[in-house]
Design a protein around this nucleic acid. Structure first.
Lengths: 143, 143
DNA sequence: CTGACTGCAAAAGGTTTGCAAAAAG
DNA sequence: CTTTTTGCAAACCTTTTGCAGTCAG
């Protein structure tokens, strides 16, 4: 497993190295899970002049070269993660809106079924599952 | 399995019966998969004066009483379905953006694992899975 | 130098809200 | 007659875009 530095990856894809790109990547690594807005706030701690639209454009580039991924949790806010993190699945509770992460291996069988049945190759880290979390289910039983 | 009529369901929850609610529900059934915007267009075929904001408010009500559900497919607008339809899972191809539906039973094992492991009860119809479809995978192999 | 990248401001897309009028029960 | 529901317009929030200036290579 050879791992290239972030700047080498960008260069290999013909992109330039800029402070903004470094800062966004660091913010993604620092925050773990974060929306573009949250990343912007984080980046602006170090460079106040960085614009939100730069965050969006940068995330697009970083995602294209495979340095970050995103998942759609809930309605309006995608969250970005480092690809270095262990890949995980988001369980979104539709009652309390809490997001729980579980290791992606729980989906192994599911992914295999999709592969066999329809030839679909799942991006595991991008899966988000809606439903009811244990806590909210308990609360409902009490009523 | 007793099944109530849509109007009874609404009444039981203390909601009133209005033409708008009937039209939106019918549009959801007619279109199968549809965004609020698309539903609005469909409804306006029969009642031109119905406003988009009414569609949103109506969908919220219909979902609350369990007559429709929605799923987030990728970035843009959510899509609404009738609960009468067979529940299915959306496979979203990140390359060609095509959405494929597969029967929800393929996720049975997965749902069971989540239930056992973290007590999470999955809303199967709401699951959307990102990845690469068979067609796009083939095309990539040729390169 | 030169093209890629950025900041800014404005537009676009999707959803929500306040309010007065209309309709349901 | 009372309360919910609706239409309308405006606000809102997130994301995208055009453009002129800046910066990496």
């Amino acid at each position: 497993m050879i791992s290239l530095d972030w700047d080498e990856v960008l260069r290999l894809h013909g992109y330039r190295i800029t402070p903004q790109r470094q800062l966004v990547l660091e913010a993604v690594n620092t925050l773990g899970h974060a929306t573009p807005e949250e990343l912007c706030t984080e980046v602006q701690k170090y460079a106040a002049a960085v614009n939100l639209s730069t965050i969006y454009r940068t995330l697009e580039v970083l995602e294209e070269v495979g340095l970050v991924t995103h998942a759609h949790i809930g309605h309006g806010a995608p969250t970005y993660h480092s690809v270095e993190e262990d890949s995980h699945i988001h369980l979104v509770c539709d009652t309390c809106s809490q997001v729980e992460s579980v290791d992606a291996e729980v989906a192994e069988v599911f992914v295999q079924i999709l592969r066999d049945k329809v030839g679909f190759e799942t991006d595991v880290a991008h899966v988000s599952v809606h439903g009811q979390c244990a806590k909210c289910l308990d609360r409902q039983k009490l009523l």
